[in-house]
Design a protein around this nucleic acid. Structure first.
Ligand SMILES: [Zn+2]
Ligand SMILES: [Zn+2]
Length: 823
DNA sequence: AGGATATACCGC
DNA sequence: CGGTATATCCTG
């Protein structure tokens, strides 16, 4: 008998062992998917991690129910290795990594369906209750099989689970487990001759048979040509293409099929075929670019990772294209990571024009079916290709990887925040590269402090590209002291006089302007002007943001919505007003201030649908609007030739974040938005509004001085023991009870102090102390870089196990998790 | 995670 | 007491 260790997509530590049925033994491969029973009812898709012939002791075993991949595994060898690394490093379970990596369409799960028992007769000793009768009627009248959740929705009852349990006892209903397959391959209808290639005799007979039917003849003629049957270069013919070409329709082909001349068949096709032309050759490089390219190659002789610091519009992408070409020629694959919002068609099409169908695109707005197709494409073939994608593309089944490019490596969106695994795709990609013996290139105009430190201390190679491409000039930046402007009466709505003038100048001269504000919605607070009351979310400790377009107050943490009260619920005065500025309000104000100017707004709310983000970018770069108002989204993925002015409405909103990375993030963001202004010849203007114009970070932005900012910030980090001089792990405690959360946090902190001494800070209540009914506490662990992180992680895992496994302990009722290398 | 079971709670 | 909301335990 053999036994398989199976990874299940669940947040549970460790794998689970199953018996391998003898008939499945021969076809079972490591990395193959299996269907296994788990718990009393459910079936899950698991992945075989290892196989052994030693029977584990101490518990009953279940058997694998089915092998889904009997031929070849669904993941590649190095992937399990990478999964294990992620789970280990980020203190998650391999199951959580599997869940994040494998597209849902590849995970078959069982669903419990409730069905009425045919010919059920009520037992007078066990009558059905009123609610039970209603459920039975609902089941009888339903068009399809129903799950418990379906029944709850249809009847409006709660606790249907228990109800069904009683009905099963009364033999009124039965439940069954059905496997639900989610993946639907895309199929297309094809047509071919019903006889072999080069069978001229059959072809002649066929034409004779359709001689009297002109359109059938036309169809046959076109098919003869398109199928290449007489030229000895056969190719498949899609019905759609044939119909278009011969101007016929399906019934005509059906008629030909009736006569036994053609065969119509359906075939699975991938969803992604690039039909455009490969029109561009490699971009010509300027001298500085060529030097940088050579320097990158040289640095890879003794370094695995190299940082390319390329100032805005220095042409990093051209370099990337050359490097990609270099690796593809070696018949190896490339992973090109970009932040989600930088993944625009401008970028992907540029790559496709050079590399054609070798380009594979992957991001979160793809449907699950599309993800499965991409997964299969990479799995089935080790052909050279370049995968361009956001965070999760690091988890795809790569073959022979030769190069990883992480563009905008400083971007926080590379770090997954909420469900575990909380991995950083940039760091994971470097590990992936190492596993494949590939090199990594990190690119950024404003590298993260950690990365630049490693690059200047020899851990990474460093190549700098400081020359701007073409005639691009740096914009002129002015910091406006808002306190003074306000005293002088120069502030109208969100804009200072300086900002207004700058925008007006830009639009008057046929240019465009960008107004950046880090808040969506209309106004971030509502307040009673009479008593100061301000509406809060019922589930979270935050003030509600007013959204004018839907006329609702919205919680940005849990999404719940409320009407805007007309009278104050506290003092009953009709004195509720909304305060502050969000993108919606700024759009209104700017539209009013510059009458005649057209505006566009880009934030989470205007980019919900699949192509809306791209649409706004296209509209603005097509000059369909004069002023673009937006959140951080406007900082990326755009190459707007016409923008000559940028206004950062509130530097304070960026700087005053209680986090050790606040300065860095603020600098990066301001530098990037500023970089949108004034390309192609004319210098642009940037206005930064701030109530603290003396903030140490602002001069560096004003002079575009990354190095200056870096040397300031690295000293701060050194002084206060932050990365890169320490490694940080946050420990989060969440609980629905405010007193309980405190006592658990204190207990956990105490336990941590026993182990790590004064490396433990906290517990503290985070900025938002309650989200979705859960009170939150945060503990910080700072570990010196020389210490063994492996040991630290082992201790943390053991601690969690120890604290969480005490029966009846209140700690078990809390959610506790670690966030390694938080951002 | 999700489900099953135990337990507390609630209206009559 | 049936019905319902909630806590706790367990999964191979
Ligand atoms: Zn009031
Ligand atoms: Zn909320």
């Amino acid at each position: 008998m053999t036994y398989a260790q199976v990874i299940l997509p669940l947040p549970l530590q460790g794998g689970f062992t199953y018996e391998v049925p003898p008939e499945a033994e021969r076809q079972l491969r490591i990395g193959a998917r299996v269907i296994v029973p788990f718990g009393r009812r459910k079936f899950y898709t698991g992945i075989v991690d290892s196989v052994s012939d030693r029977k584990p002791e101490g518990y009953e075993l279940k058997a694998i129910a089915a092998v889904l991949d009997s031929g070849s595994p669904i993941i590649k060898r190095p992937q399990i290795q990478l999964w294990n690394w992620i789970a280990d490093y980020y203190l998650a379970t391999v199951g959580e990594v599997m869940k994040a990596a494998l597209p849902a369409g590849l995970k078959v799960e069982s669903e419990t369906y409730v069905e009425p028992v045919p010919d059920f007769e009520e037992d007078p000793k066990a009558r059905l209750s009123e609610r039970e009768v209603i459920v039975l009627q609902t089941l009888d009248h339903a068009a399809k099989r129903l799950t418990v959740a379906d029944i709850e929705k249809l009847t409006g009852f709660t606790g249907v689970n228990a109800l069904i349990g009683r009905m099963i006892d009364k033999k009124a209903v039965a439940v069954s487990e059905k496997l639900v397959e989610r993946y639907a391959p895309r199929r297309e209808t094809y047509v071919r001759m019903a006889f072999g290639h080069g069978d001229t005799e059959a072809l002649h007979r066929a034409f004779d048979a359709v001689a009297s039917a002109r359109r059938q003849e036309a169809a046959l003629l076109a098919l003869t040509d398109m199928s290449g049957i007489m030229r000895g270069e056969p190719s498949e013919v899609a019905v759609k293409a044939l119909c278009e070409r011969a101007d016929i329709n399906l019934p005509i082909l059906k008629a030909l099929q009736q006569k036994g001349i053609v065969e119509i068949y359906r075939k699975e096709i991938g969803r992604f075929r690039y039909n455009g032309l490969v029109t561009a050759s490699l971009p010509t490089l300027s001298d500085p670019q060529r030097e940088a390219l050579n320097a990158i190659h040289a640095s890879w002789r003794d370094k695995n990772v190299t940082l390319l610091r390329g100032v805005t519009s220095s042409g990093k992408t051209e370099l990337y294209i050359h490097l990609i070409d270099f690796v593809l020629r070696q018949r190896r694959q490339v992973l090109y990571l970009v932040p989600e919002i930088a993944l625009t068609t401008q970028l992907t099409e540029r790559l496709q024009r050079v590399f054609g169908d070798k380009v594979v695109i992957y991001h979160s707005k793809f449907t699950d079916n599309e993800r499965v197709d991409i997964w299969k494409r990479l799995l089935c073939s080790d052909e050279p290709c370049v995968v361009i994608g956001a965070r999760s593309s690091v988890l795809l089944p790569f073959g022979p990887l030769g190069l990883v490019i992480v563009d905008e490596e400083h971007e926080t969106s590379y770090k997954q925040q909420d469900p575990a695994p909380r991995y950083n795709a940039r760091d994971t990609a470097m590990v992936l590269a190492r596993m494949h013996g590939a090199k990594t290139l990190l690119g950024s105009a404003t590298p993260s402090v950690e990365t630049y430190y490693k690059a200047t201390t020899g851990r990474f190679g460093l190549v700098e590209l400081t020359e701007r491409y073409g005639a691009a000039v740096l914009p002129e930046v002015n910091v406006v002291d808002m306190k003074r402007a306000r005293l002088r009466g120069e502030v109208k709505g969100p804009l200072s006089a300086d900002a207004s003038r700058t925008v007006a100048d830009a639009t008057a001269n046929g240019g465009q302007a960008i107004v950046f504000i880090n808040r969506r919605g209309f106004a971030p607070v509502a307040e009673c002007s009479s008593c100061g009351y301000s509406p809060k979310c019922e589930h979270c400790d935050v003030t509600l943001t007013y959204h004018k377009r839907i006329d609702r107050l919205v919680c940005h943490y849990c999404g719940s919505q409320y009407p805007l009260p007309t009278v104050c619920p506290a003092c009953k005065e009709p004195a509720i007003e909304v305060l502050g500025f969000g993108t919606e309000r700024v759009e209104d104000e700017v539209g009013a201030a510059f009458g005649g100017a057209t505006t566009l707004r880009m934030d989470l709310d205007t980019t919900r649908s699949k192509d809306s983000y791209q649409q706004i970018i296209n509209d603005f770069s097509g000059r369909k609007a004069d002023i673009l108002i937006g959140t951080q989204m406007v900082t990326k993925g755009l190459d707007f030739a016409g923008v000559s002015a940028v206004v950062i409405l509130s530097a304070d909103a960026l700087l005053n974040v209680p986090d050790f990375r606040a300065s860095e993030r603020a600098f990066n963001m301001m530098e990037q938005v500023a970089g949108r202004a004034g390309r192609r010849g004319t210098p642009g203007h940037v206005i930064i509004q701030s109530y603290q114009p003396a903030h140490p970070v602002l001069p560096y932005v004003a002079s575009h001085d990354y190095l200056g900012f870096y040397s300031y910030e690295i000293e701060e980090r050194r002084k206060f023991l932050y990365p890169p001089f320490t490694r940080i792990i946050y420990i989060y405690i969440k609980h629905r009870d405010p007193r309980e959360v405190d006592s658990i946090a204190v207990a956990y902190t105490h336990a941590l102090r026993q182990l790590f001494g004064n490396r433990v800070y906290g517990p503290e209540e985070p900025h938002v102390g309650r989200i979705q009914q859960l009170y939150i506490r945060k503990i910080m662990l700072k570990i010196e870089t020389e210490a063994s992180m492996t040991k630290v992680r082992t201790i943390l895992r053991d601690l969690y196990e120890r604290m969480h496994s005490v029966p009846g302990s209140p700690i078990r009722s809390a959610q506790i998790y670690y966030d390694v290398d938080p951002m």
